[in-house]
Design a protein around this nucleic acid. Structure first.
Lengths: 335, 335
DNA sequence: TCAACCCATGGTATCGGTAACAGTGATATC
DNA sequence: GATATCACTGTTACCGATACCATGGGTTGA
């Protein structure tokens, strides 16, 4: 009477054992249909609410999957999360979400906390983590997924794409349309690992194509916002005249750069090309539309869920799987 | 040996009782500093990972706060979530997030699932729910918060603002600058309750100011995207010439409308005014910048956390609190 | 010297489900 | 008619932490 209604109460009211209540409510095991209905009705009548914590405790299966994202306020990561949510939801698993704010130390703290909930799988964005984080998730002894990147030494499974390789077709496209002097607009060194990879891809591609050195425009701490992108470009001032193209770390940054150019009277794409990354909605809606790189963020989430299902089902145990979902150039009006 | 390391193992290795390990690791209770260090070192050496599920079970405190949002892919809701995350994180509580996709039935399903985790508080976006949802959360007997709205019959506490009232200064501003024939661009009836409130606010304000009837432009299912906004405006065709202003349900929709106008050669604001809602970053960055309504999404999250703290501390028990955080007009270049 | 008190620690029962195994009655098989 | 098989239900013992109470040794004060 003091606490909430439990299975025991339901059992008593229905005249059966608690075990039968457990079976009737879960539905997977054998119970007479009549008994099942009786129990379910009784439970509903008493307003019984199943206690997943107790179930998780006894069965040693939390029903959780831990997910870390650099930022939740990002359409692409949100899409990935949606994909994960749908797929794992179908498996009866709930997502435990944490945001690292692009900081590996924060990620470590977060992972420590998430692991205490005994997740049945761990999904980390990116392939760059502190040593402690790596040790922790390895010791957890559950499937590990690294997403949105193709790490050299993965912790477990990988579903992503090469951020560096993704930039090659973009640079080729720019070179082919006569742009030679490029600048990369991105976050300060050391904050955004995937952004740094993209920059590396641009620098390497430019070099291999015989273009002059790629200038770096520091737009501040990750995640770089539209405003930061606009400010960084505005700060370039007349230096902009020497450039042929601004290769931005993301579409929001590219859009900020575009708006700054519009305010400064620089004609895009005539005077300057601008490119983004991520194929955010704004890239195709804005005027002029932005040349960008499409990555299927939603598919990353779905694919992780599908692989996890195969692993839980006992297929593909042991072997670490890597899925390169690739990326594709999406040419817009800014180049 | 078979399972994971438990407190018993740590206790044995450190030569103390499990009870002492429990106290030493939690840190709030009385333990000799030397013993505490010994236990902590032993735990670290053994790679012990605290089991929050067991703790939650035994102490009947899950450490969870349930949150439902209409969509995670929305900068404003993401800001609210961030505010919640920060504030509840400081209280040692973890957020359990679910997305309803603007559907009260989906919300009911979600709430049912979340309550099984025995959250210590429930936070629902909006004030419109199914009867079953209302019954469920009431029966849960924990603090309830409804956010982003000011419901007439709140379930518990409220932190938000009036979506209808927020539109009044906007319509006044439009009227004052000579715009008379307004159209509201938003989601189909019945999908977006807060959007419908905004529309009602516009209709009422226009009426009380003696403006002609406000036309409704259906842009499709919520959440209405930039693309949907652009398509809806494009579909209006020459009808646009009869209008003075497009009042859009959100900034993304307004931006879509703006881009459509730019492509159609309609001059904004000369031929047509456009307004948004939410003060998304794009509203201030784009050219021309969009007139919008600023709501402090982040503050909603923070405020809920602060109120929850007061409730948990035993102050303000019983009484239902309502916090109207208001909103403010942010005039841009599109009007 | 002894009661009163505090600090630090240990022992035991228990939170609400379910795994594992043990019945029980009905029907099928030889 | 005895046995095997099946469908269904019950009994018992936990999962890993901690609430609650007990206890031992040291200090204080009269």
């Amino acid at each position: 009477m003091s606490g909430r209604t439990t299975m025991r109460d339901v059992a008593k009211a229905a005249g059966v054992s608690p075990m039968t209540v457990s079976r009737a409510l879960r539905g997977d095991t054998m119970v007479n249909q009549k008994t099942r209905d009786l129990v379910r009705n009784t439970a509903a009548r008493l307003g019984y609410v199943y206690d997943t914590t107790a179930q998780a405790f006894r069965s040693q299966r939390s029903g959780f999957v831990a997910v870390t994202l650099p930022s939740i306020n990002n359409a692409n990561f949100a899409d990935t999360f949606r994909g994960l949510s749908e797929t794992f939801g179908d498996l009866g698993l709930q997502l435990l979400l944490g945001s690292t704010n692009y900081d590996v130390e924060a990620e470590e703290h977060l992972v420590r906390q998430l692991l205490q909930r005994r997740p049945e799988a761990v999904i980390l964005t990116g392939g760059y983590h502190t040593d402690a984080t790596q040790q922790l998730v390895r010791a957890a002894n559950v499937p590990i997924f690294e997403i949105w990147d193709l790490p050299d030494n993965p912790l477990g499974h990988v579903v992503g794409f090469s951020n560096a390789d993704a930039m090659k077709p973009l640079v080729q496209h720019l070179a082919k349309t006569g742009r030679r002097k490029l600048a990369f607009v991105g976050a300060s060194e050391g904050t955004d690992h995937r952004g740094a990879e993209r920059r590396r891809g641009v620098v390497d591609a430019a070099q291999s194509m015989g273009l002059p050195d790629v200038q770096f425009v520091d737009a501040g701490q990750a995640p770089v916002s539209m405003t930061q992108g606009a400010d960084a470009v505005r700060a370039l001032g007349s230096t902009l005249n020497d450039l042929d193209a601004l290769v931005c770390v993301s579409d929001p940054v590219a859009y900020g750069a575009l708006s700054a150019c519009q305010r400064m009277g620089i004609r895009v794409p005539n005077d300057l090309a601008i490119t983004g990354f991520g194929a955010f909605e704004i890239a195709s809606v804005c005027v002029p539309s932005i040349t960008t790189v499409r990555v299927n963020a939603h598919a990353v989430g779905v694919r992780v869920g599908e692989l996890a299902l195969r692993i839980f089902d006992g297929q593909d145990t042991g072997r670490s799987m890597t899925e390169d979902l690739g990326s594709s150039l999406q040419v817009g009006e800014t180049s």
